[in-house]
Design a protein around this nucleic acid. Structure first.
Lengths: 147, 147
DNA sequence: TATTGTTATACTCTATAACTATA
DNA sequence: TATAGTTATAGAGTATAACAATA
């Protein structure tokens, strides 16, 4: 019973490599983000709200591929934690504009700095040029896909 | 209500880009693999069995980060589909050696060819050099992590 | 005592149907 | 009629506890 399995074939597959790399990056992210009690999806939602004050729930859903019923739960939790506030939308009576509270702003400022550090810790063995290249190629994958 | 949200910050994060790229690749993979009725995890398990005949359930779990109780369900399904067979392990009475049936071999031969085509369709806008670089950098991410 | 494989079950995440209020 | 937000719920995916058989 040889324990180091032959994974040579799987390693030729882009999907296998991309998934394992993404899992590595996300695992590191979760470790570091634990003190903030933010999962990756929480971070993404709150960061989008931070950089798009007044954004609606539906816009967040479209951008992050989250279904509206699930977003409701996230936003409810953020509101209980007093990280976000809701204001009536200026022109659309159905919608609600979301923004960070002062508390949310303080948290996300620290969390975004933490996220950057997390990234750096993962790619520290890549040269600066390799890091730029990796980001560029990853973007090329998902941006050219929707064409 | 501006619909194209400002995602500039998120796009600076490696995790965000890696996750989106991985989702793109996996979505394409699932589309193409649908005729074989194989999810990514099914493909990974069957491919490992194919290239490691006699492998045990526990070894597959270790390699793919799948918990034993969940693997039981997968293997049960494969057995019902007559894709794999179980033989008593030659030296360990507790364990079972797994291998593909002729039917499984036929299926996986086609599925692996399909997987390669799926990859190619995703990276077709990358030059050959870029493709090699991307794979190399992705491996560097998850292989250097465990050091 | 530790490990393989297994059952049963709990928990989390994601998806669907249907409703209300407004456009 | 279509859309934003919501509720309730179903389903898929993942995790924990405990067991029998073997090492």
């Amino acid at each position: 019973m040889k324990d180091p399995l032959d994974t040579a074939y799987l390693e030729t597959l882009l999907g296998y490599n991309a998934r394992r790399a993404a899992l590595t990056i996300i695992a590191r992210f979760m470790e570091r983000m634990a003190p903030f009690d933010l999962r990756p999806v929480d971070f993404s939602v709150l960061s989008l709200i931070r950089h798009n004050p007044g954004v609606t729930s539906r816009q967040l859903c479209n951008e992050l591929n989250i279904l509206p019923p699930n977003m409701v739960v996230f936003l409810k939790t953020f509101e209980k934690r007093q990280l976000i506030q809701r204001k009536p939308h200026p022109t659309d009576g159905r919608a609600t504009g979301l923004s960070l509270t002062a508390e949310g702003e303080t948290l996300m400022q620290a969390a975004e700095a933490c996220a950057m550090q997390s990234d750096l810790s993962v790619v520290e063995r890549l040269s600066a040029a390799e890091q730029k290249t990796l980001t560029r190629l990853l973007k090329k994958i998902y941006q050219t896909d929707s064409v």
